[in-house]
Design a binder for these strands. Structure first.
Lengths: 339, 339
DNA sequence: TTTTTTTGTGCAAACGAATGCACACCATTC
DNA sequence: GAATGGTGTGCATTCGTTTGCACAAAAAAA
């Protein structure tokens, strides 16, 4: 009924558990004869070492906790795939938690992971999180913590982020070079560093190219619902914006729909640029120019960094920050270069 | 340094570990005085029971394993969210594995989960799986197994599936009622029950409405790459298909792009219907009529069923099958009802 | 033959927590 | 003053595995 143990093997072969244990691990002190006997028996009876007992004894385990704020989400699911890829390669398991952008669930997720005695945690903060005690508790429990993408500014620990500033700067500059003059920014809450960095990239690109920074064109608009409200409003201004730089592909795609149904042509009248490079960008009409965030790469790098910490291979004692390069992917919603 | 244990508390208060253990659990044999002493000490020193030790002793744990074939995928990530929701509610943790549509990785995932001694497994099969020994091994190890969506026909165990047949039937009948006569089916490998059931729904809808079942119109076309090849080919037939019923929203969206660039109008000349109801359906032009699979609901039901098995609340001894209702969601890529 | 070395195996403790049983102490009762 | 009962605590074992140490038996050296 229950899985077979070392003791069971020992009893069956009239040996001691210690001998069996050593035989299984090819310990040199065990005779070849005994070794074969034990290993054959283990094989035929499908012996599986009990990981729990092992972990208890060695006080080390190979489970990494992951907290994502959102899972039905192209970027985060891509990051998760990258984490899984790297973790599996290195023999680590993944305990998965989903905060659903909810502070209370994020706190509970941390408790869950600490209770499960994970050896490290990869986390991306929820939008509603404003207190950080739960993250501090991870560190107080001597569990390694690496933030990815939505880092927590209140906690000083390793992190992996996308180069949001450069991504935004490059995208906005591209739109300027193709003749756009009034570029709107549909952003997100400034408390999130990713949103703030993109806004700064956007503004700096305008300034560098001697265009005015109009605060009216810079809005918090990170959901479809907000887009339905804000985009038509911006289209009422005179002159209308000739470009929209959006915080994600979904908002950009909705924005395109609204702009088109208001009678403007894309990209001739209005350019639109998204952020992420998700599936969506290929099925809009026209296809959507976007900034690729390389989520899979980010997941791999974050997992790599955490595992290096766990295994003592990352010797740098201070905080390590890794930057993932972005890439402007030109598609049909922005114009070609104008010379 | 290391987390505090019962023994540590016992030593600090000059008590025995057993007394501390009982005091923590409000055992009646412990005096109120001692109880308070112990609990206060535990509180201030942030004592956390070691789950591993507990699991080892009781031989029960609360971790459920999940195997998904694909994670950067609207439907599966939605199911995962549903599973997570239900599991968290019931105090279970999720060990996450990703087979990436690869048989070898699926086998390894099963090994990983069995090694981790999970109390149950929720799995959806990879496209490339043709042997089922690894799934049988789960059952042989007395671990509960529930399949969801991509069930494994070779293994007789609990399952939760979408009503693919009815979903397809309803969608195809809708297209017929709105005047379509030559409806193409862009399906998937017939070894997958979900694909086969949809094909049967498609064919039965045609027959019921006295339309011919033309094998040339029924193709395996479940990726964007295949769509690029097969859709133009179908558009060369004479007369061209006046509708496409597609295995998923991505293929449907690509199909629309190709049909439009061939000069046909949607839905006036050609109707298109997808399957899933993902974000994509809202950003295509026109929006995409689709069949909602209710992934979140499926995840909840699957987790619920597994947990009931684990906790002995599902008393039915045979195989339990749950069917998730589908729902036709009419958007812009199919015509209105013609009377 | 005796001593030393080698070789193979077993004992016991440890990881952290839970629990049946024994036992010490005090208070009550006859 | 002895028997009884109740109350609070500790001992020892259990889960499955690993590992330092002791020890027995056989082989080699003296």
């Amino acid at each position: 009924m229950n899985p077979i143990t070392l003791k069971d093997i020992a009893k069956a072969l009239s040996l001691s558990p210690s001998t069996v244990s050593r035989a299984m691990k090819n310990h040199p002190a065990i005779s070849a004869e005994t070794r074969k006997l034990v290993q054959d028996y283990a094989e035929t009876h499908k012996y599986k070492p009990n990981t729990l007992a092992l972990q208890l004894r060695t006080n080390r385990n190979t489970t990494i906790g992951v907290i994502v704020p959102e899972i039905v989400h192209y970027f985060f699911s891509t990051v998760l795939a990258g984490i899984q890829h790297e973790a599996e390669k290195e023999g680590y398991n993944l305990l998965f938690c989903h905060s659903n952008e909810d502070y209370a669930r994020e706190v509970r997720s941390v408790e869950t992971l600490l209770d499960a005695r994970v050896c490290g945690i990869l986390a991306s903060q929820s939008k509603t999180t404003e207190k950080f005690d739960h993250f501090q508790e991870i560190i107080d429990n001597n569990v390694y913590l690496v933030f990815f993408d939505r880092i927590c500014t209140g906690i000083n620990t390793d992190k992996v982020v996308v180069d949001d500033y450069a991504g935004a700067y490059t995208a906005v500059e591209h739109m300027i070079h193709t003749g756009c003059q009034r570029i709107a920014f549909l952003g997100s809450t400034p408390s999130m560093p990713i949103a703030n960095n993109r806004r700064m990239g956007y503004e700096d690109a305008l300034r560098k190219n001697k265009l005015p920074v109009d605060k009216n064109l810079s809005r918090i608009c990170d959901t479809i619902e907000l887009a339905r409200e804000i985009v038509p409003e911006l289209l009422k201004s005179d002159p209308i914006p000739d470009a929209f730089f959006c915080i994600n592909d979904e908002v950009a795609a909705y924005c395109m729909q609204i702009v088109k149904s208001a009678g403007y042509r894309i990209p001739e009248d209005v350019s639109v640029c998204g952020f992420t490079n998700s599936y969506i960008t290929e099925v809009t009409n026209p296809t959507l120019t976007t900034v690729d965030q390389h989520g899979f790469e980010m997941g791999k790098v974050a997992a790599r960094l955490l595992i290096n910490r766990i295994e003592g291979k990352e010797i740098k004692s201070g905080v390590v920050s890794r930057l993932i390069k972005t890439e402007l992917v030109l598609k049909g919603s922005t114009r070609g270069i104008i010379r």
